[in-house]
């Protein structure tokens, strides 16, 4: 017993020593941003671009660690349990909000496990189809799929993927259930769309821009509030016949619950600076997206976004009845 007590005492002492990272001198060592997806994906790309720029401002290296698995919830769970000292951060996309409903037994409480740093970017989506698909505009598409709802197939990159979410939202918006064809990742889904094996898909510009430009797939609309600079002729979904249909894959930067506000503020400032970095802006533009505004790259804006998005997706996911566990 005494040994056990001594051990417990030692553990307590250790945690006492390590807990309060002095906010004035932050950051004193390397910061790790956990990306809950594997290296090379869109979220990883966004993170690495921003991390590189933040390193310059913070005067400490900001490195990226990929902890993939279970739609990003494993990496988020890791950060939820990390020490709240500002040296372990999380960059997670819209999945932060949707996983709260998609997964019925998450290892963390989405709204109470994190502190907020700020929004990073919101990648728009495009509604696309195989290049020889009959309809030529969004109105025509909606009529066509309603008339042929038994034969039209909608591809997605697996449960919880951007294309899955957008597809659900689309079917919800037009009030028609179509046959969904899930794939393991965007690659195979896009291959089958190019090969004409499936009909339509709704996916991030990151994945569709080059294919649209190359004329290998047909684009009907973007799901952002404004038209995109790279596709000035492509209407928004609102303009083309689906008023209010807006879906964006937004990315946010989080810290574990209990991180001192001085630290998250410092990180917000740094994030805002990084989002004005010309290199970041240029690279984001090539991905078909823009950095979030200074007003959005704040803890308050991210918190509001997360709360409103959880509320928005909950009924859509529950109506579709598709869960990830």
């Amino acid at each position: 017993m005494t040994i056990l007590k001594a051990l417990l005492g030692a553990v307590a002492a250790v945690s006492l020593f390590s807990a309060p990272a002095s906010a004035q001198t932050y950051p004193e060592r390397t910061i790790t941003v956990i990306v809950p997806f594997s290296a090379g994906g869109p979220t990883d790309t966004v993170t690495r671009l921003v991390a590189e720029s933040m390193s310059k401002d913070l005067g400490q290296q900001v490195i990226v660690e990929n902890v993939g698995g279970a739609g990003g919830t494993l990496g988020a769970g890791r950060v939820a349990q990390a020490e709240p000292d500002g040296y372990t951060l999380l960059l997670y996309h819209i999945g932060m909000a949707t996983s709260a409903t998609l997964y019925r037994n998450l290892a963390y409480d989405t709204l109470n496990a994190f502190e907020y740093v700020g929004l990073v970017t919101e990648v728009p989506m495009t509604i696309v189809a195989r290049k020889d698909f009959e309809p030529n505009d969004l109105k025509g598409l909606i009529e066509y799929v309603k008339a042929n709802k038994d034969t039209v197939t909608v591809a997605n990159a697996g449960i919880g993927a951007a294309s899955h979410l957008c597809g659900m939202m689309f079917m919800n918006a037009i009030g028609t259930q179509l046959t969904t064809v899930p794939y393991k990742g965007t690659g195979p889904a896009m291959t089958d769309l190019l090969g004409g094996q499936v009909d339509i898909m709704c996916d991030q510009t990151t994945n569709t821009t080059k294919q649209i430009q190359g004329g290998t797939i047909k684009a009907y609309a973007v799901t952002s509030p404004k038209r995109l600079k790279i596709f000035p002729d492509l209407p928004t979904a609102s303009e083309a016949g689906l008023p209010g249909f807006e879906v964006g894959i937004w990315h946010g930067l989080y810290a574990p619950k209990g991180t001192p506000p001085e630290v998250t503020d410092r990180l917000s400032k740094s994030l805002q600076k990084a989002l004005k970095d010309e290199n970041v802006i240029a690279r984001f533009a090539e991905l078909g997206t823009e950095p979030s505004s200074e007003a959005d790259a704040t803890p308050a804006a991210l918190k509001a976004k997360l709360e409103s998005e959880i509320a928005r997706w909950k009924p859509v996911i529950e109506a579709a009845g598709e869960y990830a566990d």
């Binding site: 250790v14 390590s18 790790t32 490195i63 990226v64 660690e65």
Partner: peptide, 14 residues
Amino acid sequence: LQLPYQRFGPWVRF
């Protein structure tokens, strides 16, 4: 290779 693993973790850090 700069693998992002902590050389000494929280259990041994004072």
